[in-house]
Amino acid sequence: MKTKKYIVIAAYNSELAKRQPWYSVSYFIEKLRKDYDCIIVGSVKDIPKTFTGEVIKVFSLKDIITFDSFRSRKYKLTYFCSLPIYNFSSFFCLGLNNLLRNIQDLYRLIIISLIPKSLICNVFSNADSVIFISDETYNLFSTLNNKLHLIPFKKDNWGGGNNIEIKRDKVAYLGPPFETRGFDIALNLFNKIEGYECKVITRIERDSLKKRLINYSNNSSNVKFILGMLSREELLKELSDVKILVLPFRVVMSELPIVVLEAAELGIQIITTKECGVSSIKNFPGVIINKKDIPIDILDKVELKLANQSFFDEVEKINSIFWSKYNGKD
């Protein structure tokens, strides 16, 4: 009989499990279910008072505000932290206009950034363990003795598409037209460079984004725009001739953007920032830049490595260490 574990996550939607932030949680649940009986609930209140096993709580702003409620618990508590934790100064790189334009997506992160890190550290210390999925946040809480590092990613989810033999010569941006993701930085680079075909693969999920995209696209006549919610097959086709993906994140809404790892699996090289969550891993397939701008000659410094296998070997090592430590604490 499998050991029972409760996983607490508000408003979990399995239909969105292939997208952030649900991808990371879904990956973890799938792995756990091989050895444990996992019960997903929406609130800590749904856990039986007599339960003495492990509760895995997806970390949220509410946990910082109400963490005292966990002190009298009978069960083991593990936080799964996919929530970015920034200093308030981290938002300065957006500029005031971009900050206000994206405020409806950023306000939770801004609130957390105003909370003293010592208080957040106390919340984490009260747990039996804390799982971080970003190397940036894992390193931020360097004094925690109960932290674990997991990279939630499963290879071979392109249906063998990573073996496509095709000339890769294009440069692309992939994602919604958010300044938080560095959409404007990527377009600025595309408008300056010569000798490369550039394209933007983006989706418009809100009407307000249509106007934003029009303002940018009117000044980017040499850039090809692919719009809409593409299927996996359509997206794979668009990425099959991409040599370099430009993803200059300023701020991420949920940590470890899966697009970085999926691109690496296809043999694409990535120009990105440390916000990608895997920048410190050995053999990272690309170049790490700052959040302000991209040097025009940066593309010439990127070498094409179709396999990127050495990078994923390092990812596997990190995950192997994680599962060894995690399973050993029961």
Rank of each mutant, 00 (worst) to 15 (best):
T3R: 15
K4H: 04
V8Y: 03
V8E: 09
A10T: 08
A10R: 15
N13D: 15
S14W: 07
Q20I: 00
S24L: 01
V25I: 15
S26H: 13
Y27N: 08
F28V: 03
L32P: 01
L32H: 05
K34W: 07
V41I: 14
S43F: 03
D46H: 11
I47Q: 06
K49A: 10
T50L: 02
F51S: 02
F51T: 06
I56H: 03
V58Y: 03
K62S: 14
D63Q: 13
I64R: 14
T66N: 15
T66E: 14
D68F: 15
R73S: 13
Y75A: 09
K76Y: 11
F80D: 01
L83C: 05
I85F: 07
N87V: 02
F91G: 00
F91L: 00
L94A: 06
N98L: 04
L99T: 07
L99F: 15
L99K: 06
Y107P: 01
R108E: 12
R108T: 11
I112C: 04
L114M: 13
L119T: 14
N122M: 14
V123S: 10
F124Y: 15
S125L: 12
N126V: 02
N126W: 02
A127T: 12
D128V: 07
I131F: 09
F132L: 04
Y138T: 06
S142G: 01
T143R: 12
N145E: 14
L148H: 06
F153N: 06
K155N: 05
N157F: 04
G160N: 11
G161E: 12
G161D: 10
N163H: 12
N163Y: 13
I164K: 10
K167R: 13
K170L: 08
L174T: 03
G175I: 00
G175A: 02
P176H: 08
F178H: 04
T180L: 10
D184A: 04
L187M: 10
N188K: 11
K192F: 00
I193W: 03
E197H: 10
I201A: 01
S208Q: 10
S208M: 03
K211D: 11
K211C: 02
R212L: 09
I214M: 09
N215Q: 11
S217E: 13
N222R: 14
L236P: 04
K237E: 15
I244W: 06
V246R: 01
L247F: 00
F249C: 01
V251C: 08
M253V: 09
L256F: 05
P257D: 07
I258G: 00
V259Y: 04
G267F: 04
I268F: 05
T272H: 05
T272K: 00
G277C: 08
V278Q: 01
K282R: 09
G286Q: 06
G286A: 10
I288H: 03
D293W: 04
I296W: 01
D297Y: 10
L299K: 08
S310Y: 07
F311M: 06
D313F: 02
E314Y: 02
I321P: 01
I321Y: 07
Y326Q: 12
D330S: 12
